[in-house]
Computed example of a mutant assay.
Amino acid sequence: MKARMEHVNFHDLRHSCASIMLGLGGDLYTISKILGHSNVQTTQRYAHLQVDAQRAALDKLSVLVQNKK
């Protein structure tokens, strides 16, 4: 049965899959291998989606450093 979503192509689905995996905490290297990219640099186009995760990691580091004072 056809999905009748002519505006959606295979690349869109790959992008969505990568974005979801990244949002669930997957790392770029693993996602790169799943997508079949020959190098992780190709996958880094999704890195902009990690801003919240990066902020959370820095916040944790900040708490750790403040507790050491």
Rank of each mutant, 00 (worst) to 15 (best):
L58C: 11
R55M: 12
K2F: 03
A3L: 15
Y46A: 03
G36R: 05
G26W: 10
S32L: 04
K33I: 08
L58G: 05
K69S: 09
I34D: 00
S32C: 08
A3G: 10
Q41M: 10
A47Q: 04
D27T: 14
M1F: 05
K68W: 13
T30A: 10
Y29M: 10
L49N: 07
S38L: 00
K68G: 04
D59Q: 14
A57W: 01
V40L: 03
V51C: 02
M21F: 10
T42M: 15
M1K: 05
Q54I: 11
V65D: 07
D27K: 14
L49S: 07
V65T: 12
V40K: 01
Q41H: 08
S62V: 05
V63Y: 05
R45S: 07
T42A: 08
S32Q: 02
A47Y: 02
Q44F: 01
Q66D: 13
C17L: 15
L22T: 05
K2Y: 05
L22Q: 06
M21H: 02
K69R: 10
C17D: 05
I31P: 01
Y29H: 09
F10L: 11
H15Y: 06
L58T: 05
R4P: 00
A57P: 00
H7G: 00
S16A: 15
D59N: 14
Q66K: 15
E6Q: 08
C17P: 00
S38H: 05
C17F: 15
L49P: 00
K69G: 13
C17S: 15
L24K: 12
Y46W: 03
L58Q: 09
Y46I: 02
Y29A: 10
V40G: 00
I20F: 07
G23H: 06
K2P: 08
V51H: 06
Y46G: 00
L64D: 11
V51L: 08
S16K: 10
H11Q: 14
S62P: 00
I31L: 02
V8W: 10
C17R: 15
L64T: 13
G36E: 01
L61N: 06
L61A: 12
H15E: 08
L49I: 04
V8S: 03
D59I: 13
G36D: 04
D59V: 13
S62Q: 11
L13T: 10
L22E: 04
N9W: 04
V40R: 01
G25N: 08
S16D: 09
K60S: 13
A3Y: 10
Y46C: 02
D27P: 03
Y46D: 01
I20N: 05
K2N: 09
V63L: 12
K33F: 00
R14M: 03
M5K: 13
L35R: 03
N39Y: 07
A56L: 13
M1I: 07
S62G: 03
K68Q: 14
V51I: 14
V63S: 12
S16I: 08
G25V: 09
M21T: 00
D12H: 15
T30E: 07
Q41A: 14
H37G: 06
S38D: 07
Y46L: 02
A57H: 09
L13D: 04
C17K: 15
A18K: 06
S19L: 03
Y29Q: 06
Q50E: 06
S19I: 10
Q66T: 11
H48V: 08
V65H: 11
A56D: 15
